[in-house]
Amino acid sequence: MENTANQYLTIAMDVGEKLLQYGAETNRTEDSIRRICIAYGATRVDVFSITVNIETTMHIGYDTYTQTRRIQNTTMDIDKLSALNELSRYICKNKPPLVVVEKRLNNIEEIQNYPYSLQVFAYALISGSFCVFFGGNFHDMIAAAIIGALLKPIESGIKKYSNNRIFIPLVWSLCGGLLNAFFLHIGIGDHYDLIAIGNIMILIPGTAFTNALRDLFIGDSITGVIHIVEAILVAISIALGFVCIHSFLL
């Protein structure tokens, strides 16, 4: 019985861990873990999660089981998040064998992201569009779009060596600032600030800040404050890189 209970809790924690990794809010993660454990026979479930940690205690009669997970390498993946939500509902409704849940979790993990070429195109489109939106001319748009396309492989290269959510935007923005200065030097683009705005919009943490406010409004104060601080630090890192290049090279 003890081994089986721990297996149920492990599966619930696996689902919760993936939810947090792919961008779910903490209250949804806690609710999913709680419902899965209750579906498999728990009489009480106490869950506490923040952006980087989940702690769950499951009670079955007078027996208590506890697990803790450290969350790393978080990202936003709507497709996997939707699949995980569907899996949670399936578990609660059908109470399938654990091997079935493990197989579906593996299938979710193998869901492919958008093709890399499409991601590069999206970076170029976002950069060029926002450059024009904020007042850039045709030359600025071309420069911003090309730099945006170049920043995607740079970002991918940085992530191979570090997953720090503050360090990556800082190095990324320094590279973006250098590319902006280079393009202005060779005569592609006219306004450093407008080109930079187009590039900055790629990584601006608008979603993170919005989620932080939502967390605060629904009572998850700790998570909300963490998200707000993180979003502010990311924004400062992005701006700092472009400002440093502009100050020293232009």
Results as ranks from 00 to 15, higher is better:
Gln7Ile: 07
Tyr8Pro: 00
Ile11Glu: 11
Ala12Cys: 05
Asp14His: 13
Gly16Cys: 10
Leu20Val: 02
Tyr22Asn: 09
Tyr22Trp: 13
Glu25Pro: 02
Thr29His: 06
Arg35Cys: 07
Cys37Lys: 04
Ala39Thr: 05
Ala39Val: 08
Val45Ser: 06
Asp46Ser: 14
Phe48Gln: 06
Phe48Ala: 10
Ile50Ala: 10
Thr51His: 13
Val52Cys: 15
Thr57Glu: 09
Met58Asp: 03
Ile60Lys: 07
Gln67Arg: 15
Arg69Leu: 06
Arg69Val: 03
Asn73Leu: 05
Ile78Ser: 02
Leu81Lys: 09
Leu81Met: 09
Ala83Asn: 06
Arg89Ala: 08
Ile91Asn: 00
Ile91Gly: 00
Ile91His: 02
Val100Thr: 08
Val101Asn: 10
Leu105Ile: 04
Ile108Leu: 05
Glu110Arg: 15
Ile111Glu: 00
Gln112Leu: 13
Asn113Leu: 12
Tyr114Cys: 03
Tyr114Pro: 00
Leu118Pro: 00
Val120Met: 10
Val120Tyr: 11
Val120Asn: 06
Ala124Arg: 02
Leu125Gly: 02
Leu125Trp: 10
Ile126Thr: 05
Ser127Gln: 09
Ser129Val: 03
Phe130Cys: 04
Phe130Arg: 01
Phe130Pro: 00
Val132Glu: 01
Phe134Gly: 05
Gly135Phe: 02
Gly136Ile: 05
His139Ala: 14
Ala144Val: 01
Ala144Asn: 00
Leu150Asn: 00
Lys152His: 14
Pro153Trp: 12
Ile154Val: 13
Gly157Lys: 12
Ile158Thr: 06
Lys159Met: 02
Tyr161Gln: 08
Ser162His: 07
Ser162Asp: 03
Ile166Phe: 15
Pro169Ser: 10
Val171Cys: 07
Leu174Ala: 05
Gly176Thr: 02
Gly176Ser: 06
Leu179Val: 05
Leu179Asp: 03
Phe182Tyr: 15
Phe183Met: 10
His185Gly: 12
Gly189Tyr: 09
Asp190Gln: 12
His191Tyr: 13
His191Cys: 09
Leu194Gln: 07
Ile195Tyr: 05
Ala196Lys: 04
Ile202Ala: 08
Pro205His: 10
Ala208Gly: 13
Thr210Val: 11
Asn211Gln: 05
Asp215Pro: 04
Asp215Ala: 14
Leu216Met: 11
Ile222Phe: 15
Thr223Asn: 11
Gly224Ile: 08
Ile226Asp: 06
His227Cys: 15
Glu230Gln: 13
Leu233Asn: 08
Ala235Asn: 01
Ile236Leu: 13
Ser237Lys: 05
Gly241Ser: 13
Phe242His: 06
Phe248Gln: 09
Leu249His: 08
Leu249Ile: 14
